[in-house]
Amino acid sequence: MDKDSRDSSRLVTPAMLGFIVLLCTLPLWIGKVGLYPYLGIEILIWALYALSFNLLLGYSGLPSFGHGAYFGIGAYAFGLFQHNIVPSLWLCLMAALGAGLVAGAMVAAFISHRRGIYYAFMTIAFGQVFWVVAIKAHSITGGEDGLLRIARLPADFGFANIDLADNTALFYFVLAIFALALIGLWRLVNSPYGRILQAIRQNETRAAFIGHNVWLYKFTVFSLSAGLSALAGGLFAMAQTSAFPDVMSLHYSGYVVMMTLIGGGLVSFWGPVIGAALFLLARDIIGAVTTGWMLWFGLLFMAVVLFKPEGVAGWWQGLRQRTAGMSGNATGFARLRALLGGRA
């Protein structure tokens, strides 16, 4: 068995372990490189969000361009649950996950027989519906003023009750959830389920005619992705102790697409993580120099789409292959082409 297939059978790969260990040390050095622990929390949350988004774009070839809606729904669900029902961290996170699953399943029921640009249009339309509701339902969501005073609830493990008000403590908590999600998603994409999703991305018709229930896979993966995005949203609400409708806007939905693509989500499991880190680092580093950082990031994004759709991860893979003399990894061009109904 070669290295790749060995890794794909593992629960935790060496790279994953190394990455998580490195992240564990992050609070020790992040201040010394001129950054701050809260950035670590943000990167992990957006990486989780981008990973669940990439389940659709990269693995299943489903362009969901209104995905911010589910992130936002998670944030509101987390806040509303703790305000109105019970202020328990675990139940609030479950509420966020559940709200995303339900909203995702509702939308997926309408769109799972579609693909390509129409799929993108429909996801945008639904995303906008949720966004408008979040803005207009002032009495529930606080409208554009946002839902404020969301508490960083303590993590109650029964034997110990850990306070998460401090950014370092919250970082480790988010890291734990991120690591669990990372492992879960790794297993998912390497399971028969993940294999069939990738088959659907490449050729939906062929997948149906060898007996796979394409609609059901598209339905479940959209719901799952929405649920995990909402979980990330719930963590985000906790991190910034508030929830605002702007994360549900078309712009923010676009940011997750940009992250995923620039990082290399089309060719790599790690692409969304790389992209999220790059995006937030660029925001802080370029943003410190100029207010128009999105201008430069937007230009970078255009360049990536034009010249290197495989993104950073694809570039890295290419580099490794050239040095190792290997050949034949799927190109991002081909994958992008395959996104529209398998006309590869």
Binding site: I117, T291, L295, F297, F333, L336, L339
Partner: peptide, 28 residues
């Protein structure tokens, strides 16, 4: 121009990036 004949999603992503850039230019 570079995306003609390719998947329309390509142009969609590219023009999305262009929209971000133009909007940011307007802000600046």
């Amino acid at each position: 121009r570079r995306t003609y004949g390719k998947d329309p999603l390509y142009g969609l992503l590219l023009t999305f990036g262009a929209a971000m850039v133009i909007e940011e230019l307007i802000r600046l």
